[in-house]
Simulated scan of single mutants.
Amino acid sequence: MNSEKPNYFDLVYQVVREIPKGRVTSYGTIAHYLGLKSGARMVGYAMNAAHAMPDIPAQRVVNRQGLLTGKNHFGTPTRMQELLEADGVKVENDRVIDFEKIFWDPDKELGL
């Protein structure tokens, strides 16, 4: 391994790959877990770049209120919701239903 700074996008992707089917998390929660100084915005940039990568379930990352704020990066306006529903997540009016109940926190689930 080299001594260069870690690629933050890759770190974000590693966490996102761990989000189980049927669960969601937020941009800010991932940023906090990784200790990213640029916070949720950096995670958002990583997710915007990830939508073309089939091994990264970017649909499972929503805003802190459970809103599908990244939906415009999925090709069609309904694709993010379709992917979430295929995961078993209910969505209504661009908001995850039972957000608190299905919220996945890497601090608790993965620990460090």
Rank of each mutant, 00 (worst) to 15 (best):
L11I: 12
K21T: 15
D105I: 03
E109Q: 07
M42C: 13
A46P: 01
G111P: 02
E92A: 15
K90N: 10
P77D: 12
R60I: 02
V15E: 10
V24W: 00
L83E: 05
L34D: 02
G39A: 11
R17P: 01
L112C: 11
G88R: 00
E100I: 13
I102K: 03
P106F: 07
K108H: 11
N2L: 14
P54G: 07
N93F: 10
P57S: 03
Y8G: 07
G35W: 04
T29Y: 08
L110S: 06
E4V: 15
M1V: 11
N2E: 14
M1C: 11
G88Q: 00
P57W: 01
M1S: 14
Y27I: 07
V16N: 01
G39Q: 07
Q81D: 08
M53W: 08
N72Y: 13
D107K: 11
M80S: 07
G66K: 01
G111R: 03
G70Q: 09
W104C: 04
L68P: 00
Y8F: 12
I102S: 02
E85F: 06
L68K: 01
N72L: 11
Q81C: 06
V12A: 03
N48S: 14
G35R: 02
I19S: 02
M80Y: 06
V61Q: 01
H73Y: 12
V61T: 02
H51D: 09
P6Q: 14
D107G: 08
F103H: 11
V15Y: 09
P6T: 10
D87T: 04
A49V: 03
V61C: 05
V61A: 04
A49C: 06
K21C: 11
K21P: 05
K5H: 10
V89H: 00
V61M: 04
N72I: 13
L84E: 08
G35M: 01
E109D: 09
A52P: 02
S26M: 02
M1G: 14
R79H: 12
Q65H: 11
M1R: 12
P106I: 07
K5F: 09
L11W: 11
G28V: 07
M80K: 05
K101D: 12
R60P: 00
V43I: 05
G75L: 07
R23Q: 14
D105Y: 02
G70P: 03
G28W: 06
A40W: 07
K108G: 08
T78H: 09
S38G: 13
G111C: 02
R41W: 09
I56D: 03
